[in-house]
Design a protein around this nucleic acid. Sequence first.
DNA 1: TCTCTAAATAGTAATATTCTTATTTGATAA
DNA 2: TTATCAAATAAGAATATTACTATTTAGAGA
Lengths: 146, 146
Amino acid sequence: MSKLNLLDALKDKGFKLTVQRRRIIETLRQLGGRVSARDIHQALRKKNPSLSLDTVYRNLRLLTEIGLVHQISLQSGAVFELADDRRHHHHLVCIDCEKVACIEYCPEFPAYSDHAASEGFTVLGHIFEVYGRCTECQNKKQAANI
Amino acid sequence: MSKLNLLDALKDKGFKLTVQRRRIIETLRQLGGRVSARDIHQALRKKNPSLSLDTVYRNLRLLTEIGLVHQISLQSGAVFELADDRRHHHHLVCIDCEKVACIEYCPEFPAYSDHAASEGFTVLGHIFEVYGRCTECQNKKQAANI
DNA sequence: TCTCTAAATAGTAATATTCTTATTTGATAA
DNA sequence: TTATCAAATAAGAATATTACTATTTAGAGA
C-alpha cells in the first residue's frame, strides 16, 4: 500500500487526516521497521515540539486496530512498522533473547471473518505473534541441562 | 488441560514450580476469565501480603508465551484467562466500546510451525486478537453519518 | 468562504508494566 | 538429607502506556 493509499484507507474508515497522523505515518516510513512510540515521538519533536506522546500512542493503536500497522510486543515494550512495506506478515519472538524473525504467514482472513460475522463483528485488523525459542537459545538451554 | 497437567507442562518446559506460580494459576482458575494482573495480585495479597506485583506480571507473560494462558489486549490494559477451561479460542475486540466476544477459531498450529521451523524457531505459544466493530457500534457509526 | 460539530490533540496526572539488585528457593545430585 | 546453583522472587525505582479535560481542528454543509 502506497502512502496515499494509506491516507485514503484512513479516510475511508471515517477517521480524520490530521497533520499529526500524516507525520506519524511519514516517520514510520522514514525510520523503517520496528520503531517504538518513543522513537517516533523523539524524531518528530525535533521539528514539532508540541507533539504529545499520547497522540503517538493513540494513533499507533488506532493504526494497528484497523490493520495499517503491525505491532510487535517485546518484553521491553511494543514496536511498530507499517503494514505496507512488504507482503503482509507477522513475527516470531524468542522468549529468551528477544530476537525477532519475520514469518511469511498470516491467519487467513476468510477463515476467521466468518466466525466474526456470526458474532456481528466487522473485522478491521488483527494482532498475531508467535513466541518460541531461536536456534541459539535452544542450544544454550540444552547445553545447560547436560 | 487439568490443573495437574498445567503444572506438568510448566515442569516439562524446564520451569520451576514455585508456590507463587501455583497460586497464580489457582487464582486464574478461581476468578474465571479475563482478569488483570492487578486482580490476581489483590486476590492473593489477602493471604500472601508479600507477593510482588512484578511476579504476577512476569508469570502471566511467561504463561502466555508458552501457550498456557490467553492474553486479551484491551485499551484499558491486558486481561488474562487460562487456556485450558474450554476449547482453545481467541477474541474479537470492538475498537469503539471495548466489548469482547469469543471467536472459536485459532490459526492452526501446523500452518505456521513449518514457517517457524525454517527460521530455526521452536514454537511455544502465540497471541492472536481480532479488532473490529460490534453490531451496536456499527449502527451508531452509520446513524451519525446520516 | 464561513460556521458548526464531532473528532482529535496537548499537557499533565494517573496507571500499568518492566527493570534492577539483593535475597530466597526449587530441583538436582552427591 | 544436605549442598549447590541457576532460576525465581520482593521491593522499590524507572519506564511505558493510558486517562482526563480544556482547547483546537478537519471535514461537512450552508
